[in-house]
Simulated assay, not measured.
Amino acid sequence: MTPADLSRTVLRAVRRAVDEGALRAPVPARVRVERTRPGGSGDYACAVALQLAGPAAMPALEVAAVLRERVAAEPGVGRVEITGPGFLSFTLDAPAAGDRAVLDAVRDQGLAYGHGDALREEILQFHHAREVRAAVTAHAVRRLVVAQGARVRVSCAEASDPDWARLGVTVDAHGTPPVPLTGIRPVPAGATAGELLERLGPDAARWGLLRPAGHDRAALGPDLLVQGEANPLFRVRYAHARARALTRGAVLLGFTAGHAPDGEGPFPYDGAARPLLDLIADHPGVLLAGARHRAPDRVARQLEAVAHAFFDFHDSCPPLPAGDEKPSAAHRARLALAEAAGTVLAGGLSLLGIRAPEHL
């Protein structure tokens, strides 16, 4: 069970409690589930009972008790505890089974892993200035919110710069909108699209414009083109290319990705593999947060974290056998995790409008 699955499970429990008359409160649009902090209980925690206590006119501990019995009966949930003033803490069944569910979701959904319909009720219209960073940011935000089910229209105050198209930017309308709209107003980069394209190319230019938060200065220097670990864009794309190379190498050795068999315990999804798998499991939540907050920089930082964890995992738990070593179940499981990381990196880059080459 992924964090997104658990969030939906808790939301269904709230809806069921309201339908059955056990709670009299409006059903929230979503329920936030977070990883338990160090020293806490369980795998995940949720404050929905405290959120509903006021509208339900019930103590938070009673609301938590109502939800606890309904969530505890759900498949994949091992234990539900009530802590503090009414927090719900969840321990998931069989970590290995949950890990497999995450990898299965990535394999089945491919580049659309993390997309959803949380914003399906929203019809949005963004308006931005005739400035390259504003245009690229609006385009990336459009992709993020559309991936969560929203419908979007983007307008620009003046006629588009013809060079924006080479950066992948599209604008639906021009001119001052007749009514106030939700605006995207990042700090101007102080450069034109044509100049950035000539100096950096489309991928590095988009990364340089999108990676910083909107209120921060966009660093658009030659470091974006450096083929080395110090360049986050190169590191992200190299991690993706390396993951794809592992798949090709495995084919040459006669094996494919697969799950660790039952009875092997938590290995190989512990140790260096755990941070990478946790980041992959959290990816849908990061995409949704990026869409809600109109913040593509959150996606870029997530991709950097995935790439860093991928290389740590790759160095500690090689997915391919060395020398005369025969491919084992552990190699197949490691390859499954590496392939999932590559898919997450490619999907995230795609949402930012940046290519993910298979060879670097």
Rank of each mutant, 00 (worst) to 15 (best):
D19G: 10
G78W: 08
R107A: 15
P28M: 11
A112E: 12
E304K: 04
E195W: 01
R248E: 15
V146F: 00
R301S: 12
E20T: 07
L277N: 06
R298C: 01
A305L: 15
Q227V: 11
P162S: 10
A239T: 01
R166L: 13
H174D: 13
D297R: 05
V77T: 09
E158A: 14
H128G: 12
R235N: 03
R142A: 02
A239W: 06
P232T: 07
A241G: 13
V299I: 13
K326V: 12
P177D: 13
R120F: 07
S328W: 06
V152P: 00
G290W: 02
A281C: 06
G86F: 10
A65G: 12
G39H: 04
I184G: 03
A338D: 06
V106E: 02
R12T: 12
A64R: 02
D19S: 14
G86D: 12
T9L: 15
S89M: 05
G323L: 10
L288Y: 07
V152A: 03
P28Y: 09
R242L: 14
V27L: 09
L6Q: 06
A94E: 15
L200R: 00
A193Q: 04
A205K: 11
A272G: 05
S89P: 01
D282W: 03
H174T: 15
R24N: 11
A204T: 08
L360D: 05
A157E: 15
K326F: 01
E198N: 03
L320T: 06
R242W: 05
P95Y: 08
E20P: 00
G21R: 05
V80T: 09
A272R: 09
R24A: 13
E325P: 06
A205R: 11
R24C: 01
P162G: 09
L320R: 10
P177G: 09
H359F: 11
T343Q: 12
A307F: 08
A129G: 07
A105L: 13
V106P: 00
L61N: 01
R217A: 04
L224Q: 06
F311S: 05
V171D: 11
R301V: 11
L225T: 07
L252A: 15
P180S: 10
M58S: 05
P327H: 10
M58C: 03
T137Y: 09
L349D: 04
E62G: 02
V169L: 08
V179N: 00
V102Q: 09
R206L: 08
V63T: 06
A309I: 01
L200Y: 01
G347S: 04
P186Y: 03
Q51M: 05
P177R: 12
R130I: 00
L210F: 04
L345T: 01
G190S: 07
V154E: 00
A138K: 00
S7D: 10
L52V: 03
A213W: 04
